[in-house]
């Protein structure tokens, strides 16, 4: 035995990326993975290739989580979303690296993306207890009634995340869905799924109840099709679907009249989002209450 040891660089530990379903990190039920590369073609990792069954499990998990999440107070949901921002801030460097690799950005640009993404969580965290006041209200009906319209989450929303903006774009479509009390099944960017899969780790450690967000990676068309046809999914955001796929999914979605948000051209994910992505997945419930008079009293002697 020699006393000399060969001085080598430390071998890094690879991460096994997994799906995120019902608060757990399973491998794909199919047992399949696919290669994910950076913008210059270097291998980054293998990502799980989610199957139809994974999609189904994710819907079951999202449905199970819906009652609790939609029934939570708006204040509580705001706290949870803010907690996501806090957790993300703490893992800023990790995400800067992942976004830089995934989207081929310089470190500085990737840092700007991550910062904007953190800020986006903060923005939506503040919306949870305001959107009801902004889009709901009392209606002055002509009669002895008190009539109030309130927005309510539509239910389980399938989100086909943007293909290009794998992190800021992803959060920009997921956060509004859950801010209002919906639960989400997210199909991550097909070619850049790693930031989404890492985000799941942040969600799992920031008080977001299991099942509120479920993240699937794999072939977008293969995963989105069963989601669009699923009778227990209430809505679908087609942000990351191309024209042909979007049409196909919209047709499938008609079977149970899902609310469909068609792909919207987004020039600049950094811009202030507006409330459209929240209202797209809100129902308006209008409740009529009888009022009537206090009573017809009157003594005159």
């Amino acid at each position: 035995m020699s006393d000399k040891t060969v001085k080598t660089e430390r071998l890094s530990v690879f991460k096994t990326y997994k799906l995120y379903i019902g608060g757990k990190f399973p491998r794909s039920e199919s047992g399949r993975v696919y290669e994910v590369s950076d913008s210059t073609g270097n291998w980054l990792a293998n990502a799980p290739q989610a199957s139809r069954k994974d999609a189904r499990d994710a819907v079951v998990a999202a449905r199970k989580a819906f009652g609790g999440w939609s029934g939570a107070t708006a204040y509580n949901r705001g706290q949870v979303l803010y907690r996501v921002a806090e957790m993300l801030e703490g893992r800023r460097e990790q995400f800067v690296n992942e976004v830089a690799a995934a989207e081929g950005l310089s470190k500085a640009k990737a840092a700007a993306v991550v910062d904007a993404t953190v800020d986006r969580w903060v923005w939506y965290a503040g919306w949870t207890d305001k959107i009801v006041q902004v889009v709901g209200g009392a209606n002055p009906v002509a009669g002895p009634f008190f009539n109030l319209s309130t927005p309510e989450p539509t239910g389980v929303v399938a989100v086909v995340a943007p293909q290009e903006s794998s992190f800021l774009g992803l959060v920009s479509v997921v956060a509004p869905v859950i801010a209002t009390g919906n639960t989400a099944v997210v199909v991550a960017s097909e070619k850049a799924p790693l930031p989404a899969l890492s985000l799941a780790e942040v969600l799992a450690t920031s008080d977001v109840p299991g099942g509120v967000v479920n993240v699937l990676s794999g072939r977008t068309a293969q995963i989105a099709a069963p989601l669009a046809a699923h009778q227990d999914v209430n809505a679908i955001d087609l942000a990351g679907a191309d024209e042909a796929l979007a049409k196909e999914l919209e047709i499938a979605a008609a079977d149970n009249l899902k609310r469909v948000l068609r792909p919207q051209p987004v020039d600049d994910w950094f811009a202030t989002p507006g409330i459209d992505r929240m209202t797209a997945f809100l129902e308006t419930k209008t409740v009529w209450h009888t009022t009537g008079a206090l009573g017809a009293a009157g003594s005159s002697y």
């Binding site: 009669g143 409740v287 009888t290």
Partner: peptide, 14 residues
């Protein structure tokens, strides 16, 4: 639309 203690009420503002 939910009606409490009434039913089939309509109004243009509602």
């Amino acid at each position: 639309v939910v009606w409490s203690n009434t039913f089939n009420k309509f109004d243009p503002t509602s």
